[in-house]
Design a binder for these strands. Structure first.
Lengths: 193, 193, 193, 193
DNA sequence: AACTAAACGAGACGGTACGTCCAGTCTTTAA
DNA sequence: TTAAAGACTGGACGTACCGTCTCGTTTAGTT
């Protein structure tokens, strides 16, 4: 049988929880199950029934935002493609996702099980996109095929995360542009090998 | 007046707190003021008197470890210098500092005031060292003087932090070596400009 | 119309609920709707549909036991009749009804509406029996007709309940016998008036 | 050493808890730790630290009332002494203690450990008083020395508790008087033996 | 034989209170 | 005057049940 018996899960409650989480994160206060339940007009057990941790709620809230999607425009230039990708990422971060991301990465340090889910549901997807951008460059002969693409991806995402989390320098389009450019130079050098 | 009156601060208590913090972090349990106080045989108010937050205790515990110091051997090759620097960093992380670092960065996301202190007392120092390594390369003509060194530092430290915090790939000497090599290639390409 | 349309009440469920209640009370654990529903294999709403409170279930479980009935053997001696009545009561209590009774009286303290139902369905019936025993004695001239029989009934039932609930002294046949005897002496004294 | 170190227990909190409990019981609402903590302006852990159950708080609240004390005026007549004792008890009950007593006895049915404390701290004391009244009568030859005084005490206290908890007939001075008189008659009969 | 309507099991819902942990503060005695 | 010990208020935790609700299913009597 397909349909389970019993009262079905309330879609309304699910959305209320995600919306409340969104709002609370934006307001800067401490995010707690209690506050979410109150704001969403939902019972605490309902939240515990469906999400194993605060971080999982935030992750779902992040993923449920349609505008979180990034459309990569594949141009023939690695530099332009990368710049577009990083600028879009940057915009999403400064538009609000930054708070979610910082929360998620912090929680991942305190909850090993969540760290695995975070990798699988979020960062692995993001890495896949960046990797395919690099793969294209390899195939066009713009990037040395001996280059470890994981290292390259770690450098690019790492720079973004590091600046986001440490806050020592601004997260802006200039940074995204320069980052793309620096990597692009590396690409050219490899082509010259 | 120089010497304050009254009972002086107990150096023994200070060390007991740092040792307890060290031990608790290593055991993987949740780090709390209560647990530290109990383990150190010290009253909670004593801890609150001397440290503004858990993270500050951990930071002091980290800095008080003599072996946390990294001695950079300046060779004429950027690649070798970098490799030495990154390998030493990696060793410190895998030897135990990794837990401290992850905790500190996580706390910095939840405590803006601590984030500032963390930058000033720890990451700024580390960046200074890496920056001087790059500066040497610029002066030797191995690195394009137009290259933004902050971006470069963000990429190197970022890759390390990103992998440490996400745990998607191993933190090992191979990684440190390949990371140094990738940056060194970039350097060579710039020299060729 | 007499026979209502639709599915009739399930006698099987009713009995399963009473049996589960019986079992759970005997096991000493806390009695809850949830536990009864689970044990009886019955939905919670089914229970709420037919019983207004836990206490009402327990009351019905108690009354549905055929062996809970007490047959009074009316002898010409008040003392013997009373002793038979109290000994039978005592046996029912020690055989298991004691747990039910304690639960019911406790609930009656927290639920005024149930207290009324408890009186009407249970204690009033029991008082009626004892009262008729006393009435017989009055008619035989063994008991002063000016004696307030309610007071007398309160003393007899009160002593039983008090000892059952407080547990300071054993609930046994000796107690039942001595209680009957003490009342019987009172009776004789009145006859002597 | 006599005086313990550390902050001493707050007498103010203790009194606030007892006062809040008193007030809440009087208002008829359900008595909970949460409500007491809120009303008393006290943290829940403070209550849990000092009292093992709600019933223990109510018991302490009851015992802390100076007016709960009953002074027995020993006259030469058992009947008068008893009547005085029971009337005072009745007055205390109707004046407010009745709510406490009903709550305590109900809780004693659900918490075996408390039932023991309740017996030791409250009912044993009350029984001691009544027993000494009967003992006096025995010594004066007004009461058969073979009479089991425990049974007698169970009948008197039982009648009071039974009527209080069941509520089938009024708790008033008339009841107290008639109860005393009925027992007194029994006494006379024994003297006549 | 198909239809109607109520009762059924299952289980999710909003909610209250539980009993606990820890935060951060306060009050006392000891050093 | 500071340290230690430990009790304090208070907030959130995660859980157990409450009493209600919404499903799809079952079971009679009615058409």
């Amino acid at each position: 049988m397909k349909t389970r018996v019993g009262r079905p899960r309330s879609e309304k409650s699910r959305e209320a929880v995600l919306a409340a989480t969104h709002a609370l994160l934006g307001e800067g206060g401490r995010l707690t199950f209690e506050a979410i339940a109150k704001r969403a007009g939902v019972g605490k057990p309902t939240i515990y029934r469906w999400w194993p941790s605060l971080a999982d709620i935030v992750l779902e809230a992040l993923l449920s935002q349609a505008d979180a999607e990034i459309k990569v425009s594949r141009s023939s230039s690695l530099r332009d493609t990368l710049q577009d990708f990083l600028r879009q990422s940057m915009q999403a971060i400064t538009a609000g996702a930054g708070t979610h991301l910082r929360f998620l990465m912090a929680q991942a340090q305190q909850d090993e099980a969540f760290r695995v889910r975070f990798r699988e549901k979020f960062t692995a997807e993001r890495r896949k996109v960046l990797r395919s951008i690099f793969q294209d460059a390899v195939e066009r002969g713009q990037l040395d095929k001996r280059q470890n693409l994981d290292i390259l991806a770690d450098m690019v995402f790492g720079a973004m995360w590091y600046r986001l989390m440490l806050g020592h320098l601004p997260m802006d389009e200039l940074f995204a542009g320069e980052l793309a450019e620096t990597v692009a130079k590396l690409v050219q050098s490899h082509a010259a090998d």
